[in-house]
């Protein structure tokens, strides 16, 4: 279809558009300087407002919290990346304790585990790259160890976020982490459990993605 390409581009070049001069947006001094504490509060409030759970926890305690929540939710297995950043702490904790829920990891590629992923996995836990305080958002760059479907297919998604990584706005994340210098296969912003308002504008949760989103905010 190379013809189509050239034809389209040629047509677009035939006449350069002329726009009247555009207004400059007024600068919004966003009262930017926020403290970490303020960011944590904003993040928690916003994420809870869309029916996600947020638990404040610590480096020592988050595994315990995770396990406790799994048990409370009566989950009988938990998907995690056994080579991922959470693995070491989790395995240690799970070993020292009794070992429910069962920890599961999926090796090979999705082709070999699509069906169990959809049918058998009760929950998954992933790490989170950073968070956005103003809108209560988790920023994920899924990795080899914690692939994309982990945060998508299981009915419950636990997300472990280190509070020192909270940014105020999405614009700050993109700028300060210089995303334009190299984007991953998939970058994701997740702000709450899956939902829809397609029936009478009434919010229904858990449509295709996770029904529950649980953020463990570690500080």
């Amino acid at each position: 279809m190379h013809n189509a390409r050239d034809n389209i581009l040629n047509r677009l070049r035939r006449q350069r558009p002329e726009f009247p001069p555009q207004d400059e947006p007024a600068s919004m001094d966003e009262g930017n300087e926020t403290t970490l504490q303020q960011r944590i509060e904003a993040f928690t409030e916003k994420l809870r407002s869309v029916r996600a759970e947020v638990h404040l926890t610590t480096e020592q305690d988050w595994c315990h919290k995770l396990q406790e929540l799994c048990r409370k939710k009566e989950l009988d297995n938990l998907l995690y990346g056994n080579q991922g950043p959470l693995a070491e702490a989790m395995e240690k904790h799970w070993n020292s304790d009794d070992s429910t829920p069962r920890l599961v990891t999926l090796n090979e590629t999705i082709e070999s585990w699509k069906e169990p992923l959809f049918n058998d996995i009760a929950a998954a836990v992933t790490s989170v790259r950073t968070g956005i305080a103003q809108v209560g958002t988790l920023v994920l760059w899924p990795t080899l160890e914690e692939p994309r479907t982990y945060s998508l297919v299981p009915p419950v998604h636990f997300a472990v976020l280190h509070a020192d990584k909270l940014y105020n706005t999405f614009a700050e994340v993109v700028e300060e982490e210089a995303w334009q210098e190299g984007m991953p296969t998939n970058a994701l912003l997740i702000s709450g459990p899956s939902k829809s308002a397609d029936i009478e504008q009434t919010l229904s949760y858990g449509v295709h993605g996770p029904t529950e989103l649980v953020a463990l905010l570690v500080s």
Binding site: I110, V135, L144, P147, P184, S191
Partner: peptide, 24 residues
């Protein structure tokens, strides 16, 4: 569109599955 402060998902795709990646 909906008055939400952000949508539940914002999905940014820059490539197909890369070697070693398990899904996508």
């Amino acid at each position: 569109a909906t008055g939400q402060h952000i949508s539940t998902y914002f999905n940014m795709i820059s490539s197909p599955r890369k070697p070693g990646e398990k899904d996508g």
